[in-house]
Computed example of a mutant assay.
Amino acid sequence: MPSIIDYRSDTVTRPTPAMLEAMFTAKVGDDVFGEDPSINELEQKTAALFGMEAGLFCPSGTMTNQIAIKVHTQPGDEVICDALSHIYLYEVGGIAFNSGASVRLIQGNRGRITAQQVAESINPSDVHKPVTTLVSLENTSNRGGGACYSVEEIYAIKRVCEQNQLKLHLDGARLFNALIATNEAPITYGLLFNSISICLSKGLGAPVGSVLLGNQTFIQKARRIRKVFGGGMRQAGYLAAAGIYALDYHVKRLAQDHEHTKAIAECLQKKDFVGQIMPVETNIIIFEVKGRFTPKAFVEAMEKHHIKVMAISPTQVRMVLHLDIHPLMVQLTIDAIEAL
């Protein structure tokens, strides 16, 4: 067991021995020529899982999101998303930089927007206003504490998009967490969205990579944009093999992360220095720190127990459960919190 227990993000995981073995034995080729068999298998496997036509393997979820936005929009268009969306907050202004598009921000509920809000945010046909062309959802919502959309609300948003000729994109960085929590099938999401970004390096534990999904025409255009963005890779099948392994063996185990998250949240709820805790649905805890601790002081106190957590605002701390957090670590964490 490592000496540090790290809850800063589910991106800190390391490949398991079995995943490393899959990587070491991967068959590879030149992916820019379309000749890497492991990448081809990963793209086909992920697309089939969601009932979509094709996939594109990329180094990061930021790249898959930004490629999707670029394909779906023209310069001067407008993208609708929640104000807490990763595509807006944490992708370095990429919507403006890469696509020349503006953003209509919606104040949703823990990162989730409604069909009514989308309908109210679509610009009229007016030469003074940008053309609304794309709606982007994030499931689960990172800054919403791992909040999940209901499929019924997504269906309603999809209807609004269809009625107004808008494309619908999903930032599914933690989509498998949502699927496990809501017991929904991936195929349902494939029917709802024009494009989906699937991250392999968070809850699924792969070291690198995301897959962008869509129809054949969309992915053909996306492949060209990936090349423009510098994302053309060569013998990256060693990385794709980790993604294949993750899809085969690391999806169902996400339920354990969710159980661990609830256990820690229940412990935090009893402490006098903990204020509001966002409802825990998946693998993220975001909670208010008050009174005798500040977020910074709480982070420092946990570090004395060799536990890393992250202050995400002047009043809030975030903890994220993942593949490398085992039951004993959870108990040590609970013991450390109870001792404060």
Rank of each mutant, 00 (worst) to 15 (best):
I5Y: 05
M19D: 09
T25N: 15
A26S: 14
F33K: 05
I39P: 01
E41Y: 07
L42V: 10
E43W: 02
K45E: 14
K45Y: 08
L56I: 12
T62M: 15
N65F: 11
N65H: 11
N65I: 02
I69D: 06
H72W: 06
Q74K: 03
D77L: 00
S85L: 09
H86S: 15
V92F: 15
G94I: 00
S99A: 15
A101D: 05
A101H: 02
S102W: 01
L105C: 04
I113T: 10
A115V: 04
D126H: 01
V127W: 03
P130I: 00
V131T: 04
T133E: 05
L134M: 06
E138F: 05
E138L: 02
N139W: 05
T140P: 02
R143F: 09
S150N: 12
V151Y: 15
V151N: 11
I157K: 14
V160N: 13
C161I: 13
Q163S: 15
K167P: 11
K167E: 05
D171F: 14
G172N: 02
F176T: 07
G190A: 12
L192F: 06
F193V: 13
G209T: 13
G214W: 02
Q216W: 09
T217V: 14
T217M: 12
I219W: 01
I219G: 12
Q220P: 10
A222N: 11
R224I: 14
G230W: 01
A236W: 02
G237Q: 08
A242K: 04
G243M: 06
I244D: 07
Y245V: 04
L247P: 07
D248V: 00
V251E: 01
K252N: 00
Q256D: 02
H260S: 10
A263C: 06
V274F: 06
V274C: 14
I277P: 03
E288C: 10
P295L: 06
E303P: 01
K304M: 09
K308N: 13
M310V: 12
T315Q: 14
V317E: 13
R318Q: 14
H326L: 14
I334V: 07
E338R: 11
